[in-house]
Amino acid sequence: APVMSISVRPASNPDSEKMMAALHHLADEDPTFVVSVDEETSETILSGMGELHLEVLVERMKREYGIVATVGRPEVAYRETATLITEGQYKHIKQTGGRGQYGHVVLKLEPMDAGRGFSFVTEVKGGRIPSEYIPSVEKGVIKAMAKGPYAAYPVVDMRVTVTDGTYHDVDSSEFAFTEAARVCFRTLFLKGHPVLLEPVMSIEVSMPEEFMGPVAGSICQRRGRIESMDDVGDLKVVSGMVPLSEMFGYSNTIRTITSGRGSFTMHFERYEAVPFAIAEEVVKKRREANLIR
């Protein structure tokens, strides 16, 4: 899955349709490149495997299709998950004359191992929630997970079990159960000590030996962990792990500290929890931008 996004818009409005056609052609060639439109801002969003990947695609759009684009600031594809098991209930009840709305669910949220995704389980007994409403409960949970309650990033690695609930013969509906599940999930998730997850990259930097100290320092300054230092021919190779959010502009850094004689490769490895202080800063900025509802 993509780990970084940028917004793009054509330098001239008449190029909008041409730009979208070009981007879809590029996406057809590259399964790691995703084009989408932000529903709230109507911006075109390009998502890929890193800064260089997206820079190359924007350059190709200019070179092969003649479209110059204005590029927004890169955004890291954070995720969020809970760390504690939580259980609770929510009743969605509205009465505004005529037919009302009634949906009542009892949910259990459990964090799963990293990379496990999402699991929805039904343990409702005796028709306490009619079977035709169970898909609506799942729909409400998925809706809540798409923009998580903590930082409005997708929620991952959760098992959600609907254990009980009640319904009303007249007022219950698919919508009412979707809303009950959505609100119940959001409330319980925030009680489960949520954490922010960030993409962590494996990195290899090659350089002449005299630059090894500054290169190692540049990785550590970016919250990186050095895992090995090896000889490959006449060069030294430093390998490690580093958060993607700290790697913007790293190609310029390497060029500067090695006098143009160093190079690096970087690949997505896994998601890891963001340190609390940094996570709080990310959440604060998103609140100030009205991205968390």
Rank of each mutant, 00 (worst) to 15 (best):
I6Q: 03
S7H: 08
R9L: 11
P10M: 00
A11N: 08
S12N: 03
P14D: 07
P14H: 05
K18W: 04
M20T: 03
A22D: 02
H24K: 14
H25C: 06
D30Y: 09
V34H: 03
V37Q: 14
E39N: 01
E40V: 06
S42F: 08
M49G: 10
L52N: 09
L54I: 06
E59S: 02
R60L: 10
R63E: 09
G66K: 04
V68K: 14
A69P: 05
V71M: 14
R73F: 02
P74D: 01
A77R: 00
R79F: 10
R79W: 13
T81K: 15
A82K: 03
T83Y: 00
I85C: 09
Q89T: 13
Q89G: 15
Y90G: 08
H92A: 01
I93Y: 08
Q95T: 03
T96D: 13
G97I: 11
G98C: 09
R99F: 11
G100A: 08
L109Q: 12
E110A: 07
M112F: 12
D113R: 03
D113I: 01
G115F: 11
S119G: 12
T122W: 11
E123R: 12
V124Y: 07
K125T: 10
R128A: 15
S131Y: 01
P135D: 12
S136G: 14
V137I: 09
V137R: 07
G140T: 10
A144R: 11
A144M: 12
M145F: 14
G148E: 08
Y150F: 15
Y153N: 01
V155F: 08
D157E: 05
D157G: 08
M158A: 08
M158V: 13
T161H: 11
T161M: 11
V162W: 12
G165P: 13
H168K: 04
D169Y: 09
S172G: 06
F175K: 00
A176E: 14
A176G: 15
R182Y: 05
C184D: 05
K191Q: 15
G192P: 06
H193M: 03
H193A: 07
V200N: 00
S202F: 05
S202M: 07
I203L: 10
I203V: 08
I203K: 03
P208Y: 14
E210C: 04
P214V: 06
A216C: 10
C220K: 01
R222I: 04
G224E: 00
G224Y: 00
I226G: 12
D230G: 04
V238L: 14
S239E: 15
S239T: 15
S239A: 15
V242S: 01
V242C: 06
S245W: 05
F248A: 04
G249P: 10
Y250R: 08
Y250D: 07
N252L: 13
R255C: 09
R255I: 08
T256K: 02
T258M: 05
S259L: 15
G262D: 10
S263F: 07
F264C: 12
E269A: 13
F276A: 04
F276H: 00
I278K: 13
E280K: 13
K284M: 09
K284V: 05
K285C: 02
R286P: 12
I292P: 14
